[in-house]
Design a binder for these strands. Structure first.
Lengths: 253, 253
DNA sequence: CGTCTATTTGAAGAGTGTCAACTCCTGTGG
DNA sequence: CCACAGGAGTTGACACTCTTCAAATAGACG
């Protein structure tokens, strides 16, 4: 599941084994329950193994804004390092399987395995890129653009971890949750989806999303074909990292 | 100027000196010019020394969305590590002074100075927190809430680097730029600002922002008093980092 | 003093929100 | 096996925020 990291940097077999080796006892969280709540003081980092989750915040008047979705392979909360308290909550959307990693393990890992450190770092930057993209969507796109954008994003991300088969993704999101992520009302999301179905752009029923016309959708969403793929991720930095005189306990694989 | 980092982790005198020591030749960029453009392949990291800048993207129809502002002390583009090409542009809003740092220097620094590494890491996480906060604002707040939120954010950030004096900040932003950041039209931003002035919440004229009633503004913005202050940033991780058997070339100050 | 940009004002229109009702599906307990 | 409850999806009418367009004013700079 942490095969996602291989997308970010070339990992040696030893790196892979090290990755598979870590990870404490798994944990299960039922759908619609918080994994961590705002105000919590998290003590571990976890990796989402299966299921779907989201980060969100609740406003004073009870409305909710989902800031991002977590799909299998995603890492939750390097935040330990910054905040004593969480400034937002993370909830399971479906039932969810987690792998815990104590942070000393993470620190050791990043020190001993420069390529893993780099992959983690890049994955964090990708998250940031996604957040920026969402800001653009919420700020400047109308309802159709937002829906198209979000579905494309989720589609690509699932594709990157091998969860797409023939334009189909399992997406157990309610229209309510889509609305909370897009800054719209469920009613309006519904109308947009129906419009998309009528024009044969996609179908989204029974928790199954099928993109019939990805090209046209991406036009509506104004997404560049590969905005997440990091296509030619520069490896200058990577190679420098490896050349670097490793006074500092290098390792051989 | 890189005193901002001291907010994130306790730095030793040696750390400080190391920070001041780096930084290549300064660079100047005129107002309304790009510092780096979308599609560029950045070769250096830079720190904003003076002036105001923003990250933005242009949509197909020419509209612009500003995703974040950069104020003195902010670091631009650890992105080198991830993308070959920039997925967005950075523009100078006012005339701007930059300090360049080649990335080998950055890598060396982060390896040799764990506390600096931690500070950088936290500063990146703070950026992420700001992005999330902006998503909430764009998704779920009305125009008044958004304006109030953005002005509070900028106010607090300037305060953190010592650029606030008696509720006053120099903010050379046009209403057009505010609108591009908030996902609104300049016309509407104008109306909201006038409303705020009429109700004695703030004044914003001649590039000078004065918050007359910060408390009430924060209510409208729904911002927690200290959302950026990272009040009790946990230092468990920090102390672990220092204890860690530094096979790896520790340094003494 | 004239030009350019930024700000201000008004009126009309579009896109979403709100509210409320109704349907469909799924799972549950009698 | 059926009735029922509850959540999710669907539909329509109407209200409202924000946008759009256009034009006037004010300020900054050469």
């Amino acid at each position: 599941l942490t095969r996602k990291l291989a997308n970010f940097a070339p990992l040696s077999d030893g790196d892979m084994r090290a990755l598979d080796g870590i990870g404490g006892p798994g944990q299960h969280v039922d759908a619609h329950h918080d994994i961590v709540s705002e105000g919590d003081i998290p003590h571990a980092i976890f990796v989402l193994q299966a299921g779907l989750a989201c980060r969100y915040r609740i406003l004073n008047d009870g409305r909710r804004q989902i800031t991002s979705f977590l799909i299998p392979g995603d890492i939750c909360d390097l935040h330990v390092f910054l905040f004593r308290k969480m400034d937002h909550s993370i909830a399971a959307i479906t039932a969810v399987e987690l792998a815990n990693i104590a942070w000393p393990e993470v620190i050791d890992l990043t020190f001993d395995r420069p390529r893993i450190a780099m992959a983690l770092w890049r994955s964090a930057l990708q998250e940031e890129a996604i957040l920026r993209e969402r800001i653009v969507a919420l700020g400047r796109r109308d309802a159709r653009g937002r829906v198209a954008y979000l579905l494309c994003e989720l589609f690509w991300r699932h594709k990157l971890v091998g969860l797409v088969e023939d334009q189909c993704v399992t997406l157990p999101l309610t229209q309510n949750e889509l609305a909370d992520a897009l800054g719209l009302t469920p009613v309006h999301v519904n109308r947009v989806l129906q419009d998309f179905r009528r024009t044969k752009l996609l179908s989204l029923e029974q928790r199954l999303l099928v993109l019939h016309d990805l090209g046209r959708l991406q036009l509506i969403a104004e997404i560049k074909e590969d905005y997440l793929l990091l296509g030619g991720a520069s490896d200058i930095a990577g190679s420098y990292l490896e050349q670097r005189p490793l006074l500092r306990g290098s390792q051989s694989d």
